[in-house]
């Protein structure tokens, strides 16, 4: 009971709103937040893919250090970085144990560490980039690089509707709780209670399916009257929407700096 109370509190609509705002706009003032989304995408396009194909340990370490600096500049909480790296190491650990089991030996450690390093570089790069973009910037950026307008609409719609949907889910879940009867005995490891609440969590979607269907209908009708069926992918509309996007000096310096750093890694290591 205590557990479910905590869980429902965590899911309280106001709490989720706070969390969402924080996640979305928490990193507004950093250097990365001022860059153009295209710069960030381009930068990520390199650091999110290339590590897969680099096998020189020193270069990878160099990239890793670079990523640590960027995450620091982007003001990502060190705890997140730590947990992330720990998780990756843990995965590597399982692989190591399993490979020992299959007749491998400790020489497997090195390749696995390298793999972990690559994964860390990639993850840190994506954290740097995507935590530095607020939703509007991300969707404008995606629109700019040619993704369909429906995607940026969907992102905005998500932020619009989530609290409403969550609230409705919450109400329905509460109705189930109040009118149903929780199991008398918690069972081994609370298994009965957990199973009961999971069942409620699943069943609560039945009413939501119907009411969201009604919602979707009005929304699409409204979209039609707001011209968006016409406007989502229209070139003029895109231009208007993205008029604020400009590559600035800062963007070029950052890209050039990264390039110089990577070249020197390859040249001097």
């Amino acid at each position: 009971m205590e557990y479910t109370r905590k869980f429902t509190e965590k899911l309280s609509v106001e709490q989720v709103k706070i969390e969402l705002l924080n996640t979305a706009y928490g990193n507004g003032g950093t250097f990365f937040a001022k860059l153009d989304p295209r710069t960030l995408f381009l930068w990520y396009a390199y650091f999110g893919i290339f590590p897969w194909f680099i096998h020189e340990v020193m270069v990878l370490i160099g990239m890793f250090l670079f990523m640590l600096v960027t995450t620091y500049v982007a003001r990502i909480s060190p705890l997140i970085i730590f947990i992330l790296c720990l998780g990756l190491l843990g995965q590597g650990g399982y692989l190591l144990i399993a490979s020992l089991f299959f007749g491998g030996d400790w020489t497997s450690i090195l390749p696995l560490l390298i793999l972990t390093l690559k994964l860390s570089v990639i993850s840190l790069a994506s954290i740097t980039v995507f935590c530095s973009m607020n939703p509007e910037k991300l969707s404008n950026g995606l629109l700019k690089i040619g993704l369909p307008g429906q995607i940026s609409f969907s992102i905005a719609y998500g932020y619009r509707m989530l609290p409403t949907l969550l609230e409705e889910y919450h109400h329905v879940f509460q109705s189930f709780r109040l009118r149903g009867k929780a199991p008398e005995k918690h069972g081994f490891l609370y298994i009965n209670t957990i199973a009961y609440f999971i069942k409620l969590a699943v069943l609560s979607f039945y009413p939501l399916l119907l009411s969201t269907a009604k919602r979707a209908r009005t929304t699409v009708e409204a979209l039609e009257t707001k011209g968006s069926m016409y406007g989502f992918n229209h070139i003029e509309v895109k231009k208007l929407k993205l008029a604020g996007l400009k590559m600035k000096k800062r963007d070029y310096y950052f890209l050039a700096g990264s390039l110089v750093y990577m070249i020197s890694l390859f040249l001097f290591l």
Partner: peptide, 11 residues
């Protein structure tokens, strides 16, 4: 609309 809530589509 009567259910004007669903007519608002932006955050």
């Amino acid at each position: 609309y009567q259910d004007f809530e669903n007519q608002i589509v932006s955050p």
